[in-house]
Design a protein around this nucleic acid. Structure first.
Length: 217
DNA sequence: AACTCGGGGCA
DNA sequence: TGCCCAGAGTT
């Protein structure tokens, strides 16, 4: 359990983030849970804007797990160029579509254990799908969220799963999805991985790592 | 634990 | 023009 100081700092951070990024939410556009799943797989190491361009085009020609299961990875690779890692992603998507078709009657599973068995779906992707498509309370932790949790002293550097646990302890459940997006925005714009732009940061009074004083990097 | 995939975004 | 990834799988 987090100590009192940590909880208090978390509350202040939460307040600042809601001022800085009041409307943060997923930018992924989708009309079915399957389309969301594909979009999230495509979004690895890539922006949501770029993913939206690709999925929009893609789903004019293919829309169901059956459609994608009928493709070869090489065929699909041609359709999803532009979001990076396309050979891996096309293989993941074809294999995942086959499994959804054969094992889950064409429906995207809504249980974590099932989602995480799908090729290309790890903890972070499963958390996004569970949260956005199925309305479950999850805190997706990517590299940005993990890094900020360390710098803010809300977690102890034992990997993203530990960050997820710790963040869920100190932040109210109703705000997990929003905080996830707020932290991603802040991580990309201000709290950069290599050289954080503390001079532009609105959380400088609250951050134990601000300007490299003390605390985790 | 380190490596791989890849084109967009940004300095 | 070079560097870093809005991750997950493999070795």
């Amino acid at each position: 359990m987090a100590n009192k100081e940590t909880v208090k700092r978390a509350q202040m951070i939460m307040g600042k983030l809601s001022e800085l990024y009041p409307d943060a939410a997923t930018e992924l556009e989708f009309s079915t849970s399957f389309e969301l799943l594909i979009a999230v797989i495509l979004s690895a190491q890539c922006t949501d804007v770029q993913v939206n361009k690709i999925t929009k085009k893609l789903f004019k020609n293919y829309s169901t797990p059956g459609d994608f299961a009928g493709l070869t990875p090489e065929q699909l690779a041609l359709e999803i160029k532009g979001c990076g890692l396309f050979r891996n992603k096309s293989r993941f998507i074809v294999d995942t579509s086959k499994i959804i078709l054969e094992r889950y009657q064409g429906q995207v599973p809504d249980k974590r254990e099932d989602l995480e068995k799908l090729p290309g779906v790890g903890r972070k992707t499963a958390n996004v799908v569970l949260g956005v498509a199925f309305g479950q309370s999850t805190f997706p932790v990517d590299t940005h969220v993990h890094r900020l949790a360390q710098r803010w002293g809300l977690s102890n550097g034992k990997g993203p799963e530990q960050s997820e646990k710790d963040l869920c302890q100190v932040f109210p459940e109703a705000l997990w999805q929003r905080l996830h997006h707020q932290m991603i925005l802040h991580g990309r714009r201000i709290c950069l991985a290599r050289s954080p732009r503390c001079e532009l940061c609105g959380l400088i009074e609250v951050c134990p790592s601000a300007n490299n004083k003390g605390a985790p990097k």
